[in-house]
Write a protein that binds this DNA or RNA. Structure first.
Length: 583
RNA sequence: GGCCCCGUAGCUCAGCUGGAUAGAGCAACCGCCUCCUAAGCGGUAGGUCUUGGGUUCGAAUCCCGACGGGGCCGCCA
């Protein structure tokens, strides 16, 4: 709808230039159309005349006058007004909104999709938690945001892949292997000396027990082989947990990408060779450094440590280059905010290897403060004292949990109170939206029960929707596609959440004020628009003060005198719809 | 010391990449179930958009500087 109007304005603008009513020839990149906050300003407003003021060297209101005359007879518009410093306000015909409703009925679940992303391949990499322990609540936020960003991108027509990068090659995995091995020996009754940086949590003991049950004791193996065997076992098991937890959260990845496979395929070596060839790396203090400072980083970064082992950065370089080799036009990484210092070196690396830094978008997810009844929890994977994501999902529920994580922009910190999220009452915004849906379902259910046929798309008598609230609902529904598109282009899925809350609020309000299931013959809805004011004094009905407005817009007529201590109640269809208090 | 995020109603936060009288939920107060789900609705009250400059027709929004809160800054991951 918005697009149609935008095109109409552009056409009018060109016509004005063609016949000399306007002279500058200035055409803005995009005609800005916004929905005014105040409904009296119409359905859409544009600031075009104000933008033209300078190139045309005329007053904005005069330009607005010219433009609005050019648009006057357009079939979309019911009314065009010039207001304020030079806004042009448009009120669209009701038929426009019926068209939207028709489209929704025809498109069903496809409604809201668009093709602005068509032809662009995007990869969203998220979670990517180390496979050394269960996911915790902080991972949960990143998981939901990543999944939701991928979802809105897909809805906007982008070709999206969800990927989980498995860090199965670093020190932490060795530590995991050692921790399991030591617990295994403990099971055998041997004395162990558990290192401070080992994984202390109970699940390590569980893994040790499982290892023994499935593989027996690794007696024939050397120490290093045993650690390796335990590590592989642990990683496999833990990844299964993670996958199951994410599935309980409604998240599925298209691809699980192993860091180790980069080494197995010599990808890291190839990358290092390419960097050396381009003169981007050098040796110092027995370590290999990447010249990231040449591309905006504040210091050079180590690729190979002096002990000969690779840093994570080394494999990240290879990994990200490989993403582009796989043909993605854009790559989104969802990281915890504590990794923000990592961004400059990644962008520098991309620039050094000939990719535009904008091709990598990093979404930083701020911390989650986990609370219970307002009291904070502290978390630390190694201390063994943490709440897993699974526990939270089991306690709060997947939908409520996802909703909570999406309620805030991802770059602001989030307080997550378990008790609050669990409450199934009005304190909890999740149920507000669900309740609106429940009421719609209930109407449909009752309609069917009463023998009403649900109309097919295109066959509904939409012109029976004449109430202000009904048109307002249609207008809100019309905004869904642009909401989704905006959420996709800005990587801000929380916009959809706010949209849904607004939509639900409008529906609840409408639902409360007007019945949907009525007998059309007995109850002429178009006649019910008018309101009536009744006045009461000391509890007694006194003379009606008269008709003073329509729909929700009921005003005291000018000049009308209302005696003191009079109670004004607005009625619609004989039912009280609002109480004005005492005058 | 350098860097990132935040600062909007008593609390938690929106504010659509500069627009008209700054919004919502919770908490408070007053009302609404003979009627499609009261998990709801209507109303009242609540604001120096932290602060000081700048940019322009116009700033909560953009720029610079303070102040306050949180976080990061290793040949850790």
């Amino acid at each position: 709808m918005k697009e149609q109007l935008r095109q109409a304005i552009l056409t009018a603008l060109r016509e004005c230039y063609a016949d000399g009513r306007l002279t500058s020839g200035f055409v803005p990149e995009e005609v800005q159309l916004e929905v005014p906050k105040n409904a009296q300003h119409g359905d859409f407003a544009t600031n075009l005349a104000m933008l033209l003021a300078k190139p045309e060297r005329r007053a904005p209101r005069a330009i607005a006058e010219t433009l609005s005359r050019a648009l006057q007879d357009h079939q979309l518009c019911d009314k065009i007004e010039i207001a304020g410093p030079g806004f042009i306000n448009f009120r669209l015909r009701s038929a426009c909104w019926y068209e939207v409703l028709d489209r929704i009925m025809q498109q069903g679940g496809q409604y809201g999709r668009c093709d602005i992303g068509a032809g662009t391949r995007i990869q969203v990499e998220f979670v990517s938690a180390n496979p050394t322990g269960p996911l915790h609540i902080g991972h949960g936020r990143g998981a939901v945001v990543g999944d939701a960003v991928a979802a809105v991108l897909a809805a906007a027509g982008f070709d999206v892949q969800r990927e989980y990068y498995v860090n199965d090659a670093g020190n932490q995995v060795q530590t995991l292997g050692l921790s399991i091995l030591l617990r295994l020996r403990e099971l055998q009754g041997r004395a162990i000396d558990f290192p401070a940086d080992g994984y202390q949590a109970d699940y390590i003991r569980d893994l040790a027990r499982q290892y023994r049950d499935e593989n027996g004791d690794p007696v024939d193996l050397t120490e290093a082989e045993a650690i390796d065997s335990c590590a592989r076992f642990g990683v496999t098991k833990i990844l299964k947990w993670i996958e199951a937890d994410l599935q309980a959260f409604g998240i599925r990845f298209d691809n699980w990408y192993s860091e180790k496979s980069l080494y197995d395929r010599s990808m890291v070596e190839q990358e290092l060779a390419e960097l050396a060839e381009k003169g981007l790396s050098y040796r110092r203090d027995q370590a290999l450094w990447l010249k990231t400072t040449e591309f905006g980083d504040d210091k050079d970064r180590v690729l190979i440590k002096s002990d000969g082992s690779h840093t994570y950065f080394a494999s990240d370089v290879a990994y990200h280059m490989e993403k582009f080799e796989r043909g993605f036009d854009r790559v989104i990484d969802v990281w915890g905010a504590d990794h923000h210092g990592y961004i400059p070196r990644m962008k520098a690396m991309l620039a050094g290897l000939g990719h535009p830094p904008e091709a990598l978008e990093v979404l930083l997810i701020q911390m989650v403060n986990l609370l219970r009844d307002g009291k904070p929890f502290t978390m630390g994977k190694r201390s063994g004292n943490f709440i897993t994501l699974r526990e939270v999902i089991d306690e709060v529920g997947s939908d409520a949990c996802r909703f909570y994580f999406l309620m805030r922009r991802c770059d602001s910190q989030l307080d997550f109170d378990l008790e609050l999220a669990k409450q199934q009452n009005s304190d909890n915004p999740v149920y507000y939206v669900q309740y609106a849906h429940a009421r719609v379902c209930s109407i449909n259910r009752n309609a069917e029960k009463d023998g009403y046929a649900v109309p097919e798309a295109g066959a509904a008598e939409l012109d029976r929707l004449v109430l202000e609230e009904e048109l307002a609902l249609a207008k809100q529904l019309a905004r869904f596609p642009e909401t989704v598109a905006g959420a996709a282009l800005h990587y801000e899925p929380h916009r959809v959440i706010f949209y849904l809350q607004d939509l639900a609020a409008q529906f609840h309000s409408y639902y409360n004020r007007h019945r949907v299931l009525v007998d059309d013959k007995k109850n002429d809805r178009s006649a019910s628009v008018s309101g009536e004011c009744r006045s009461y004094r000391a509890g007694q009905r006194v003379d009606p003060v008269g008709y003073v407005g329509s729909g929700t817009d009921v005003k005291k007529p000018p000049g009308l005198r209302i005696p003191s201590a009079t109670r004004i109640v607005v009625h619609s269809r004989g039912k009280p719809v609002s109480a004005k208090g005492r005058e």
